[in-house]
C-alpha cells in the first residue's frame, strides 16, 4: 500500500487481492469522518465485487474498468469509477454516491435503496430494475426494461430509452429527455408539473448538470397503477 502526497492511499490490484482491498475498505466504521480516508484503486482490469459493502464515508477512485457489482450495497462512500462498469454496479446501494465515468452494463443500481448513481455514458438493459429509493442519473441512454418493477426513487436519462421502459413500475419516477422506444406494461407518460421540474432540477444539480440541461425538455413517466390490484380486464398485461 503506497501513500501519495494528498493522503490518498493507492491499492494496486495487480499486487493486492480484491479480498484484501475490500477488507481494508470495510474496516472503516460508520463513524469515520468524511475526510479521513481516500483510496485510489489501480489496475482493476474488470475484476468483480470491487469496493462492495463499504459502511463509511470514504472516497474511493477506481482507475479503470470494473466487473460485476462494483460498489454493491454501498453505504456512505463516494466511489468514482474512471471507466466502464460491469453488470449490477451499485446493486442494492443504501446511500453515498457512485459515479461511473464511462458506460454501465445491465442492471445498474438494481434494487438500490438510496444514494446517487451517476453514469456519464450509457447504461444498458434493466437500469434501475426493482429500484427502492435510489436516484439514478444517466447522461447517455438507457437500455430495454429500464425501471422494471421500480418501487421508489428517480431514474433520469438524458438520452434515449430502450423498449418496455418502466414495465410493471410501482412508484418510481422516470424522466427521459430523448426518445422512448416503447413503454412497458402499466407505464404511462405523466404531466411534468412544477414540483417535478423542481425535483428534476435538484437531481441535475447533484449530477453537475444544472443550467446545462433544460428541465422542461424531459418527459415524465410513471405508473398507471392499473396492475396494483388484479383485475381480469388487465390480464393481457400479466
Amino acid at each position: 500500500m503506497l501513500r501519495t502526497s494528498s493522503d490518498t492511499r493507492e491499492i494496486d490490484l495487480l499486487t493486492t487481492s480484491v479480498r484484501d482491498l475490500n477488507a481494508t475498505l470495510q474496516a472503516f466504521g460508520s463513524n469515520t469522518r468524511s475526510d479521513e480516508a481516500s483510496f485510489r484503486v489501480l489496475t482493476p482490469n474488470g475484476a468483480h465485487a470491487i469496493a462492495v459493502g463499504i459502511d463509511a464515508p470514504l472516497n474511493v477512485e477506481i482507475a479503470g474498468h470494473v466487473g460485476y457489482y462494483c460498489g454493491g450495497m454501498n453505504k456512505c462512500a463516494s466511489i468514482i469509477i474512471d471507466g466502464n462498469a460491469g453488470q449490477g454496479v451499485g446493486e442494492n446501494m443504501m446511500s453515498g454516491v457512485i459515479h461511473v465515468k464511462g458506460d454501465a452494463s445491465q442492471c445498474a443500481g438494481a434494487t438500490a435503496h438510496g444514494g446517487l448513481l451517476l453514469i456519464e455514458g450509457n447504461a444498458s438493459a434493466r437500469c434501475g430494475i426493482s429500484m427502492k429509493g435510489i436516484d439514478i442519473v444517466v447522461k447517455g441512454g438507457i437500455g430495454h426494461l429500464s425501471g422494471f418493477m421500480g418501487q421508489t426513487g428517480r431514474l433520469v436519462a438524458f438520452g434515449d430509452a430502450g423498449e418496455a421502459l418502466g414495465d410493471s413500475i410501482y412508484e418510481a419516477r422516470i424522466y427521459v429527455r430523448g426518445k422512448v422506444e416503447s413503454l412497458g406494461a402499466d407505464c404511462i407518460e405523466k404531466e411534468l408539473r412544477d414540483e417535478h421540474r423542481a425535483e428534476l432540477f435538484a437531481l441535475l444539480k447533484q449530477a453537475d448538470e444544472a443550467h446545462k440541461a433544460d428541465v422542461s425538455e424531459f418527459r415524465r413517466y410513471g405508473s398507471a397503477r392499473k396492475l396494483y390490484n388484479f383485475h381480469i380486464d388487465n390480464a393481457g398485461a400479466y
Binding site: 474488470g46 475484476a47 468483480h48 474498468h65 466487473g67 460485476y68 466502464n84 460491469g86 452494463s105
Partner: peptide
C-alpha cells in the same frame, strides 16, 4: 479498434 472486433462475456476477458 482499427485492428479487430472482439467479443467477450465479461470485460476482464478483453483486457
Amino acid at each position: 479498434t482499427d485492428d479487430y472486433v472482439a467479443f467477450a462475456s465479461e470485460y476482464r476477458s478483453l483486457t
